[in-house]
Each structure stands twice: as structure tokens, then as C-alpha cells.
């Protein structure tokens, strides 16, 4: 067990955890930020996607000891009231079915748009690899284009 000071959603937080504890579980079980979801634990599904210095990473493979000075942003920190253009687009297109994987999908899409504000379908194919069993892919694609058209890069 060790003590870590990590930046999550622009707040410096103290966590007592084993060094190998994945950020997924630090967020969910230590910090009670349960918007980041567990799906597979092996970086396949993307339900646990968070931003690591602005890039989308799968937090199930990110040990707390590796975070150091990096900035972590979770779905709870993407915007205070769900006003990020990607969140708004998700709502406008009515993307969610069960909704479980969607925070990971939104974080993946928001990170992509930050680095590629006007993605083509091919860009989306290559950048978004999250799993959704409900099959919301068609609406996710629509929502990403909508967010891009409204300036999805503001954050």
C-alpha cells in the first residue's frame, strides 16, 4: 500500500492503494467516481476509457503508480452539467440503449475530436474501437459528426 496524489478532474486527490491498482478501480472504489465502467479488464472493450493528458486511455491498464503528474479526466469531469458538445450530441441523436458503455464511448469520441476536429467516416472507424453490445454504432457515428459540426473541440 502506498499513498498517491493524483489529479482527477482538475482536483488533486490523495489515494491509498497498491501500486498495481488500475485507475479503473481507484476511480470506482476509492474515489467513488463510478461513471467509468468495468467491462473486460484487458483493454478490449473501452468501457473504462478516461482522458490521460487529453488522450483516451483504457484505465483498466493504467496502474495508479504510473499516473504521477499526469491529468486524468473522467466522464464526471468532461463537463459539469453534461454540456460538452459530445455529450449534447449523444443526447440529441438519442444514442444510448442500455447506456452502460456510453461514458467510455463519449470519452473516446471527445478525445478524438480534440485532436481531429473534423473526422471522416474512415477516421471514426480507426479511432473508435469501443465495444457496444446494444449496437449503437450507427448513432455513435452520427453523434460524432454532429458534435464535430457544432465544434466538438471546445474542451
Amino acid at each position: 500500500m502506498a499513498t498517491y496524489k493524483i489529479s482527477v478532474n482538475n482536483k488533486l486527490l490523495t489515494v491509498d492503494a497498491d501500486p498495481d491498482t488500475p485507475m479503473l478501480w481507484v476511480l470506482r472504489d476509492h474515489l467513488n467516481l463510478v461513471g467509468t465502467k468495468f467491462g473486460c479488464g484487458i483493454a478490449q472493450c473501452g468501457a473504462c476509457t478516461v482522458h490521460f493528458n487529453g488522450f483516451a486511455v483504457r484505465s483498466c491498464q493504467l496502474p495508479v503508480s504510473e499516473v504521477k503528474d499526469s491529468k486524468i479526466v473522467t466522464i464526471e469531469g468532461l463537463s459539469a452539467e453534461g454540456t460538452h458538445p459530445v455529450q449534447q450530441a449523444w443526447s440529441e441523436v438519442d444514442v444510448p440503449q442500455c447506456g452502460y458503455c456510453q461514458s467510455g464511448q463519449i470519452m473516446a469520441a471527445a478525445a478524438m475530436l480534440k485532436h481531429n476536429p473534423h473526422p471522416t467516416d474512415e477516421d471514426i472507424d480507426l479511432s473508435i474501437s469501443n465495444i457496444c453490445r446494444c449496437g449503437t454504432h450507427y448513432r455513435i457515428r452520427k453523434a460524432i459528426h454532429l458534435a464535430a459540426s457544432k465544434g466538438g473541440v471546445t474542451k
Partner: peptide, 10 residues
Amino acid sequence: NIDNHKIITG
């Protein structure tokens, strides 16, 4: 979806 806002804000 009635829960959209809760879903998209985690």
C-alpha cells in the same frame, strides 16, 4: 431515452 442525461454524465 428517459435516462439519457444521467447516462451521458456518468
